[in-house]
């Protein structure tokens, strides 16, 4: 039972990274300038790399639970349907303009930094090993995206307006970050008491609010309707379209390699 929790938790982290990486990679060749094209696709690459390490561990768990299932990182990424994906909904949303994309990275990278920052102390060595590596990478993403949020928020009337709009669009998707599903409790973290996720959320809120204030952006009203469900497989319509493109080759030509 505990292994099943670890498996689902690993998928939640891996799926969030993979879907974010796949979505951001749509910027390849379309960045505002060459350097930014390279920057955002490098972030996509880091995300996909983290997802691979996590899927490799998930495949190990799956094969242990169901001998003969022949799971690999590829079968898990390419042969599951939308309802099996446990990614945070925010990662599947369309990129929108540059401001919306960097704000999405900003929210997610801050979430990853909180999560990986705790996961490095996990008793599950495979997870703490990945967290140790990933933490350095997401710290760099936090820094880069925070610079952009400040620059655009505290920029021209046009850029500020667009960032405010992006903030209002993305904010409702941040609620599920720290609302744990059942599988997030058992055995993943040591001594995860009632306030464990609350503390992570407070840390996230503090860091995010500080930058948003510097960027002269205003947080949406607290009664805004907040969305959730990604972690248990409930998704927006956008995920299916993304998977259709990402999984096409393996679905049409099973086991294809090049």
């Amino acid at each position: 039972m505990e292994d099943k929790n670890i498996y689902e938790y690993t998928l939640m982290l891996a799926d969030s990274s993979l879907i974010m990486g796949q979505r951001l990679s749509e910027w390849t060749g379309h960045g505002p300038i060459l350097e930014l094209d390279i920057a955002i696709t490098n972030i996509a690459l880091d995300e996909i790399g983290q997802a691979r390490l996590l899927y490799q561990f998930a495949a190990e768990l799956k094969n242990k639970q169901e001998p003969g299932s022949k799971a690999t990182e590829d079968t898990i990424a390419f042969l599951r349907d939308a309802w099996d994906f446990k990614n945070l909904q925010i990662s599947e949303l369309p990129n929108g303009d540059w401001g919306q994309s960097v704000l999405k990275i900003f929210f997610l990278a801050h979430w990853q930094r909180q999560m990986y920052g705790k996961l490095i102390y996990s008793p599950i060595k495979n997870l703490s090993d990945v967290a140790e590596k990933a933490l350095k990478e997401v710290t760099y993403h936090v820094r880069w995206s925070s610079d952009w949020v400040r620059r655009l928020g505290d920029g021209t009337e046009e850029s500020r307006g667009r960032m405010q709009k992006a903030l209002e669009y993305l904010w409702p998707y941040t609620q599920e970050f720290f609302e744990p599903e059942g599988y997030e409790w058992d055995g993943i973290f040591e001594n995860a008491g009632e306030d464990f996720f609350e503390n992570m959320k407070a840390g996230w809120n503090k860091e995010v609010s500080l930058v948003l204030t510097e960027a002269s952006l205003t947080l949406p009203e607290s009664h805004t309707y907040m969305r959730k469900g990604g972690k248990k497989g409930l998704h927006t319509e956008h995920l299916g379209h993304l998977l259709a493109e990402m999984q096409f080759l393996q679905r049409a030509y099973p086991g294809c390699e090049w």
Binding site: E35, N42, R143, W144
Partner: peptide
């Protein structure tokens, strides 16, 4: 120095008067 160095030394002329163009280069 986990985050990027502000002014690394130029490998060509050794000057320290250098400026960041982009935080991500041709490789990660």
């Amino acid at each position: 120095e986990v985050l990027e160095k502000k002014h690394p030394r130029c490998p060509h002329c050794h000057s320290m008067d250098t400026i960041l163009v982009t935080a991500f280069g041709t490789t990660a």
